[in-house]
């Protein structure tokens, strides 16, 4: 308990000192012959006070899309991409994992597609799906799909044959074996890939918004348009909001994962 308090104290101390130093060092003038030069130029890294100010400005009705609306758009696309990616990845992993011939047929295509850096596809996806929600969702899907696919594939392959045998001795038919043995075994692997998947879905969406976010906005769009206006404060606002969103989503999914996998030894309550 005491230890926990100490840890939290130091965490807070680092934050306060860091933000304080940032505010102070970007506020003082440098010793230089050129007048008006800052010790550290807030033009590039902005200042905490400026960031707070912009945060409220971006949430006011003075802008076309508020920060809140932008965030909502990003989160919405992330979740849609995540769910579509998880479900399609799961189905594909299960089907190929239980069918050796199909797996061998598709293997080179899957490897080729997976080796391709997803970011290289952004322009093409934007060209096909336009500057809206769909392109972002497709990007998130393409990343999540493969994470979930490979996990589920592995899971479907490594089903313990003795579990299948014991089900058969208990009178299970093929469909029942699928439902009560293979799917639950594979799902354990699928669930374990949910937490990384949500983070990667967010990456896909933000990349998509860099290029194609215009109509619906989105945090990625805010970042890239701040680059256009050389506005580091807005960028910082976006980054902080994005970091918090990422943490909240990952923690939320982690909770879901723990709930779904509560039968696993590592999730058993200790003591």
């Amino acid at each position: 308990m005491n230890e926990k308090l100490k840890i939290n104290f130091w965490r807070l101390a680092i934050l306060v000192v860091g933000v304080g130093a940032w505010e102070w060092l970007t506020g003082i003038k440098a010793v230089s012959k050129i007048p008006g030069l800052y010790f550290i130029d807030p033009f590039f890294i902005s200042r905490p006070s400026k960031i707070v100010e912009r945060f409220f400005y971006l949430n006011s009705d003075k802008v076309r899309l508020t920060l809140w609306q932008m965030l909502l758009s990003t989160v919405e696309s992330t979740f849609i991409g995540f769910f579509v990616g998880v479900s399609t990845g799961f189905v594909a992993g299960l089907v190929l994992g239980r069918n050796d011939r199909l797996a061998r047929i598709f293997e080179p295509y899957i490897i080729a597609f997976n080796s391709l850096p997803r970011i290289a596809l952004v322009p093409l996806v934007t060209m096909i799906f336009g500057f809206g929600l769909l392109a972002k969702v497709v990007l998130a899907w393409m990343i999540v799909f493969f994470i979930v696919f490979f996990n589920t594939f592995q899971g479907a392959r490594s089903v313990d044959p003795d579990l299948i045998h014991s089900a058969r001795f208990l009178g299970a038919r093929e469909g029942q074996i699928m439902r009560t043995v293979i799917i639950p075994s594979a799902l354990a692997w699928t669930f374990a890939s949910l937490t990384p998947s949500i983070s990667f879905a967010l990456i896909g969406v933000v990349i998509g918004e860099f290029i194609g976010g215009e109509s619906g906005g989105g945090i990625g769009y805010l970042i890239i348009s701040s680059l256009g206006t050389l506005n580091s404060a807005d960028m910082m606002v976006s980054l902080i909001v994005l970091a918090i969103t990422g943490i909240v989503m990952a923690l939320g999914i982690k909770q879901v994962e723990m709930r779904l996998l509560r039968w696993r030894p590592e999730y058993q309550p200790k003591g």
């Binding site: 045998h165 089900a167 009178g171 038919r173 029942q176 009560t180 639950p184 039968w263």
Partner: peptide, 30 residues
């Protein structure tokens, strides 16, 4: 696998994702 035969393995073949009740119910469920 013959219908009238039950088999107990050396290895642990209890389904880890099912509770005790739901494991024991398996055969009846099938």
């Amino acid at each position: 696998v013959p219908r009238q035969v039950g088999y107990v393995f050396q290895k642990d073949t209890v389904f880890p994702w099912r509770t005790v009740t739901r494991n024991i119910a398996l055969g009846l469920e099938y």
